[in-house]
Design a binder for these strands. Structure first.
Lengths: 220, 220
DNA sequence: GCCAGTCTACCGACCGCCCGGTAGGTTGGC
DNA sequence: GCCAACCTACCGGGCGGTCGGTAGACTGGC
């Protein structure tokens, strides 16, 4: 049950009592889609209301405000990243396997639905300071998690002389950029893109004058 | 076109000679800075006017409108990319040297001043359709140039099984992302970042069971 | 040496529009 | 009858952009 509605607990409830969770999920999903396409500031509350078949006032029955909507979407995306990328990766003991898990799972998420994940990185400026601090903190944790993984690879001798921070940022940039060029109806299919990007990411950081002795080398 | 900006190149000459080119350059520079920091839509004409010590009406003596301002900045960034990255790379005959030139020069530009180059990729939806088509076309040419370079490397046998398009996009993403995390006053200095990112980019695409036979290996 | 005319470089005031958000209903299913 | 689920109507404000004006520097004619 992956719905944007799960992010609702972050902003609390609206007016009174129980509201239809499906309806609310649809609102968040549509808002994410439109924010993604036009950008947060260029999107009006009316745009979102129209997309879900409501008037502006009707929409406000479900949401607290535009900025809360944005924060809820970004929190949801961050939750997605935690659950689908970070946690699975954390369960991998081997650093290289962990790195591959991070990149391939993150890339996979983006090919599936990039809206919320892209908003997460592009619309930080639209948040209130406290909310922004929250999201930026979680993003920083993610990058540090990757940097730690690269540091572990370095300690294993599989990486030579690479600054883990630069490495982590670079890999993140590579993966996030997918949302800019990947189209589900394009020439390349998602599996291929995920595999290729993962391969590039691993190649980019590994020391490359030996074969990989990991036993985790089942590609190519 | 008229506003395609003799103003931004302004170290001296103006095509028409009607207005002070220094003043105009300052306006574009400030606008780029603020667009970069707050985003195009979140920036008001008043913000820019205030930053250059003018009223809104005074500012309109120099500019045609907000969207023209954006287009001029993005055209300038694209010109910069052409002159500082693409042209120098085109003069390199060896594909690997060419790739290294592209990545390192692009990365270098971003560490020097990322405003215009970042706006170039983040604010496309703020443009009028014709302007957007213009910029997107030039950006596509850039990516194709990189893809062609990767294809040439593949023909040399230095790259195995990599899709040139995915490779090109991934490298671009890696480089562009620098503007998000690099700070001139941070722990890492520009030389280090440029060198490291270039090294990662090359590693990411090269087949990695041999040393580089290019004779172009003058790092580390 | 002076003044009329001209031009650049601005400003205060204003316009119409649309924005996020709200007050106060109305409706329909239980 | 109640309450979730909407609506119409409206508000203050900020937006991009325009208009009419003007201070002051710079000409050229006499």
């Amino acid at each position: 049950m992956t719905s944007l509605d799960s992010a609702l607990h972050a902003t609390g409830r609206t007016a009174t009592g129980e509201t239809d969770p499906d309806r609310r999920a649809g609102i968040y999903r549509n808002a994410a889609r439109i924010f993604h396409r036009k950008g947060y500031h260029a999107t009006s509350i009316n745009d979102i209301a129209a997309a879900v078949g409501l008037t502006k006032a009707g929409l406000y029955y479900y949401i607290k405000g535009k900025q809360d909507l944005l924060f809820a979407i970004m929190s949801f995306a961050m939750d997605q990243l935690d659950a689908q990328v970070i946690e699975p990766a954390r369960r991998e003991q081997d650093p290289q396997a962990r790195l591959e898990t991070i990149v391939s799972r993150h890339a996979r998420l983006i090919t599936q639905d990039s809206s919320a994940l892209t908003i997460l990185v592009n619309e930080l400026e639209g948040l209130l300071p406290d909310d922004r601090a929250d999201i930026i903190g979680r993003q920083r944790d993610y990058v540090e998690f990757i940097a730690d993984t690269l540091a572990a690879l370095r300690d294993e001798g599989k990486v030579l002389g690479l600054d883990p921070t630069i490495g982590a940022f670079s890999l993140v940039g590579m993966v996030l950029w997918i949302s800019r060029w990947y189209r589900a109806d394009g020439r390349l299919d998602a599996d291929e893109v995920v595999a290729e990007v993962t391969r590039m990411a691993v190649s980019a950081v590994l020391t490359h004058n030996e074969g990989s002795p990991t036993g985790k080398e089942n590609r190519e």
